[in-house]
Design a protein around this nucleic acid. Sequence first.
DNA 1: CAACAAGTTC
DNA 2: GAACTTGTTG
Lengths: 525, 525
Amino acid sequence: MYNLPLQDHAPAAEPSTSDPQLNIQPELTLPPPRQTPPVLDSSHTPMPGIYNFRVRLGHFDSTNPTGKLTGSTTYSSLLDRLFINMGVYTPITLFSHTPPPEGAVVRCFVVFSSQEKCTTTVTRCPNHRSATDHSNTGNDPQKAPLTHILQVSHPQAQYLTTPSGVESAVVPYNARESSVKNSAAKKERTAGFGAFQDTTSIRYMCYSSCAGSINRENIHTVFRLELGSDILGVASLDTKICSCPSRDRTKAEKLTRQQEASGTTGSSRKRSEKGRDSPSHSTDIASTGATKDSHTSERIQAPSIVHPHSSQATLVGKRSQRLIQNVQHKLPTRINTADTHTAHPMRWSTAQSTRIATADSTVGIDEDAVYYVAVRGRQNYEVLSRVADGLNALAQRPPRARSFRQHNPLPTRTPSLLVTSNPPPPPTTTANTAAPTNTNTNTNTNTSTDTKTVFSRPGQNSTIPSLSSRRNPSLVSSTTSVPPAQPRTAASSRSLRTVPSRERRVSGTVPSDVPVSESPARNTR
Amino acid sequence: MYNLPLQDHAPAAEPSTSDPQLNIQPELTLPPPRQTPPVLDSSHTPMPGIYNFRVRLGHFDSTNPTGKLTGSTTYSSLLDRLFINMGVYTPITLFSHTPPPEGAVVRCFVVFSSQEKCTTTVTRCPNHRSATDHSNTGNDPQKAPLTHILQVSHPQAQYLTTPSGVESAVVPYNARESSVKNSAAKKERTAGFGAFQDTTSIRYMCYSSCAGSINRENIHTVFRLELGSDILGVASLDTKICSCPSRDRTKAEKLTRQQEASGTTGSSRKRSEKGRDSPSHSTDIASTGATKDSHTSERIQAPSIVHPHSSQATLVGKRSQRLIQNVQHKLPTRINTADTHTAHPMRWSTAQSTRIATADSTVGIDEDAVYYVAVRGRQNYEVLSRVADGLNALAQRPPRARSFRQHNPLPTRTPSLLVTSNPPPPPTTTANTAAPTNTNTNTNTNTSTDTKTVFSRPGQNSTIPSLSSRRNPSLVSSTTSVPPAQPRTAASSRSLRTVPSRERRVSGTVPSDVPVSESPARNTR
DNA sequence: CAACAAGTTC
DNA sequence: GAACTTGTTG
Ligand SMILES: [Zn+2]
Ligand SMILES: [Zn+2]
């Protein structure tokens, strides 16, 4: 309690005082991720997609072209991580290269970064969700449920909770072309980001240290551009909610720098940086085309990343391995949770030299590249899945991480990411329509969480087939080529087709509404 | 979560590893309280009473005559404070000079030590009361409610919760004459304690630092010997529930010692020792007689200290000032909560040179002595109250503490300790009868919380009349005299009568079930 | 048990 | 913003 700078309403748009070098092609200017392998859940993996959907902290306009943040909120470009106090709003700007389609919405939610926990629901701790808690004063539970850890200050925000407890907030995505065009500062600040942007404010209603919820784990804030049941893009943001953002950022950066100096002290960095994920997630993934006019026959409920009806393939490098990990982690035959922290650091060092295709920047080729193969129609998807299974089995790459360690005596929930032939149960999600400043509900807002995830599904060993050729020409061209910085139109991406072949990542249905069996991280000390 | 040494069942009786000098006439062997004035709630003020009802940590028998504690649990005789981890049982022994009457029970509960909070209910934090919290595994909610912060390992324990949320556990008091009589060690360890003893184990289900409950405040564990609606004695124990009892004890002792060296640095010790109360509460209060065969006409509901029908007067020294503070604090005309930490340290230093009459030890005279005058019958009590008011008004002693400071933005609840002419509402308490090992309920156990409190009621200025004479001869004799160490019989105390006069502490009805208006300290950071 | 992490106090 | 408190980690 006490000095919590709780805000009842998010300020319209404020200047910032923190690190100005936000997300500016981190792959090129920042050292590649040298920490533990990524851990984002497959349905949360950053994927700019054809819209080059990306997130930047701050609000960018003529008065604040650099998007400086206010108050204690701060962003570390070194770590690509947001440090923010609980209860305070911070503006985030979602960019896209092309204007979003009508009815596009952004689903915002928080996930655990670690692979062990990435399927565990992040909800508010019992202390803070208590109606009598001071953090809830001036809060309208009708608008934002007390259990939701993430609030979006938008009159049309809709708060959803699936039966299994997965929480998210959906707001319309009304990106407009940036009014501040030629500002040098703004240009610098938004280099690599699309010309269309939409700014909203978010706040977190728990600390990262809150027992009974995040419990000192690392989290990512995920912004998912959706249109109906399609996921058009995913952006995420490494987030730490703490009472002393500045202090903690400084400390984290210092630690990172000295680790970097001492050559990736990849031993037991568990304490200080609990399996930190490598930063710069929303910029190191190549995006390809994807049809927006989807027309599937059936749907997978619950929030999950998906490109069900569109042909699409996304090439990623290191980041892809996260996917593999995650998918592996979700396999029905999953053995246990591989300890990210003890994963082959050498392997990652090698990967560091590779570059990932981005819509805006030239990158090198990654032999470990992973393809996201989107299929049109469920049948196709399942067929493709089986094919890919065979391919993955053939490519007998050694498993990545084999050392398991039980850090947390918490119940390990069995992930439900597996290809199911029958669709999951209907949404039945609880929707709280925001009725604050603006009581009218956006009819275009997708309140259902039923989206599909088409993802790579490697063999048990999770490693990627080492073949690097056979790339769909209609995809993000060659990994060596430098895609033009200009946004690709949706029409151009519509020509994409699925490319079934080895080393392609097979798609797997991912009911992202996964955390079912176990209760949320409702444990205290 | 994690390494919590939770115990499902209290061990029968274990040896100890901590400070052996427990409560051995602390007034004589330990420096007198030099810290902030006492703060125990009037209904929780230690009062050995005619039974010399006192508490000692540990279990004392032939195998463990010194009552050593086990595990991390430790006791500081310097601070007279228990340091204990959450979830672990520790044996406590309740002593009495004479065998308790049939049906006598002990009500156990936790109170805030500070006068500002002493009327606030201490309950469990939302995190730990959550049924899914690991601290509740193996816990039978039918036995001990999840909300109760204090658990008593007794088959006949009854857990009560008043409508206003006051929680307590009641267990029968079956004190038997110590079987280990002549052990030198035991004798030393139990010097000053009665020959009759009953040992039970208790545990705490929250940390002292738990936001949403104790929230880093100081607490006392109160053991109240009750017979029906009569309170026969009150013992209390300064308690800190922490994850590192040893470390915290060492640190607290070191701080105390250096404060002591630097001459009672009575300035702002708020941080380190949040208005710590002076220790040794259960031994520095003289006890007098009190009839057990009460026969009042009406009762005051809810737990509260009381000697409704018996004539009794208790003389206390420094400790008495706590009472005054508390009573003042509860006056209807109460201005605000006086900051204990800024209270006149000089005044207390002076008081240090005084000695308090104990049933077992000779002590000096305290001119600031306070008398607890028990009256028989409500009418008498109210008359006496009015008389005392006048007396207090005449004795124009300057108010003790006048500097108010707002440390806690929490809602300050208006204490309800005032003389009401109509009795409070009926108990309506929720009783959870323990049905663990032993399912049979003790019919003698008093499940109702309706007891009366007869207490001194000073003027607004709370100071004590400086008169030190006019003591009831039937009371604990003279403050200078050394009461015999032998236990007084109940019969001897029955001869006591009320002595209405100036400088006598007037009695005031104290519905101890006070914390009503506001919700419990349900605030987090 | 030492070091750390992180909310709170001043 | 420095220092402290205190639960957690190894
Ligand atoms: Zn919280
Ligand atoms: Zn607690």
